[in-house]
Amino acid sequence: MSEILNFHFDVDGDDFTSAGKASVQVKKNLRQLGLPPEIIRRVSIAMYEGEINMVIHAGGGKADVNVTEEYVEILLCDNGPGIKDVEQAMQEGFSTATDNIRSLGFGAGMGLPNMKRYSDYMDIKSKVGEGTDITMRVNIN
């Protein structure tokens, strides 16, 4: 039986300066577990994009990372405004970020596309007015 390792994080929605904290911590944890550098890079980038999205759009949320023998799974859950049109949001360059956010270098419309690009599996469940749940998996082998 393979044991599942879980890391849980509360993503603070107010603090833009510490956004990315959870992803950097996950990177450290995965390094300690001795996972291959390219897997760690893919997991931490995919998670960072999700974390930033939760800070920018949803006022924070929760992140869980499960490590199994087969894959690293990232679960992101927020009670934000939801995504009206997921297909549109997945297009490179599409963004609803404000000018203020853009001036910080975000809002390029690459967040969700990067998450898809760096994961082997991605599922988005979103309801307008209720929130968004995202599952991503990066295969280890």
């Binding site: 980038i45 994009e49 270098g105 975000f106 419309g109 690459m110 967040g111 596309p113």
Partner: peptide, 9 residues
């Protein structure tokens, strides 16, 4: 690059 997600990608 200056767009952070672009750089990450």
């Amino acid at each position: 690059g200056d767009l952070l997600s672009w750089v990450m990608g």
